[in-house]
């Protein structure tokens, strides 16, 4: 049930950890590296940005061994399919991997996905051989379309990016889980360990988060909490919870009661 028999498979690659972690917003690169290590994450997201031409500044990959992690470049900051496609092509050239976290944003206030542009970009990228993991709305019809296009997973949001509001619509996530075959990863919205556990208990294949760890008062401790929550939630899901009942059901036997 756990260990080797419970691998997460995305785009033909096997992963033991079901927690994916972003690398933004940490206080320092040392803290980023430490949090990633403690989290046990094997897939980490990165953004694609201009090189600082003043080379006195250090870069993330000076602190993180790219051989140790699967880098998942994102298209954060892209508001059109065209920009997202361009970013993915650059990411592939820079990272020499086909994995991309595709996000096409609708507006700056909500950072909700522009699903129309997302579908357009996904189609092009899948045709170009990318392993596409799209950040999308928690909408089963959309997720099925993304699956049909050939995305390697779907990544519905639990709540707005960076909001920490948790899984706002667990029923939508459940419906997605019942209707798509590719891995379902909750991306965005997780605030605390219990949120991550809820996502996993619903049956999600993984959880992706950044702010919940990086923005915590103690990011290293939260990285460990999230690691354990994802493991606990997964085990709980696999173990099969008891049905909910309105009334009590005694745990001690009535037989042999001497009163």
């Amino acid at each position: 049930m756990t260990g080797n028999s419970d691998k997460l498979i995305i785009g033909g690659r096997e992963f033991s950890s079901r927690l994916m972690v972003g690398t933004g917003k940490y206080a320092s690169f040392e803290q980023t590296a430490r949090a990633l290590e403690i989290s046990g994450a094997e897939i980490i997201t990165v953004a694609v940005r201009r090189v600082n031409l003043d080379r006195s500044k250090e870069s993330l990959l000076d602190y993180i061994d790219p051989k140790k992690y699967t880098l998942l470049p994102n298209t954060a900051g892209c508001y059109t399919a065209e920009d997202a496609i361009r970013t993915c092509r650059l990411a592939r050239e820079a990272g020499m991997s086909d994995f991309v976290k595709l996000e096409v944003l609708g507006d700056e206030k909500t950072l909700f996905p522009d699903n129309e542009e997302l579908l357009k970009a996904a189609k092009v990228l899948v045709a170009e051989g990318f392993t596409v993991l799209p950040y999308c709305s928690d909408d089963v019809i959309l997720c099925k379309k993304l699956e049909d296009i050939g995305c390697a997973a779907v990544m519905p949001l639990g709540a707005p990016i960076g909001s920490g509001l948790g899984i706002r619509n667990p029923y939508n996530i459940k419906i997605i889980l019942e209707n798509v075959k590719v891995p379902v990863i909750v991306d965005a919205g997780v605030g605390s360990a219990s949120d991550a556990a809820i996502a996993m208990e619903l049956g999600c294949d993984g959880v992706l988060m950044n702010t919940a760890i990086a923005g915590a008062q103690d990011p290293i401790a939260m990285a460990e909490a999230m690691k354990l929550a994802v493991i606990a939630g997964r085990l709980s899901y696999k173990a099969g919870r008891i049905p909910r009942k309105l009334y009590a059901n005694a745990s001690s036997p009535l037989d042999g009661l001497f009163l």
Partner: peptide, 8 residues
């Protein structure tokens, strides 16, 4: 000229 930086 682009490279990878921290991001979610």
């Amino acid at each position: 000229i682009v490279h990878f930086v921290g991001g979610g």
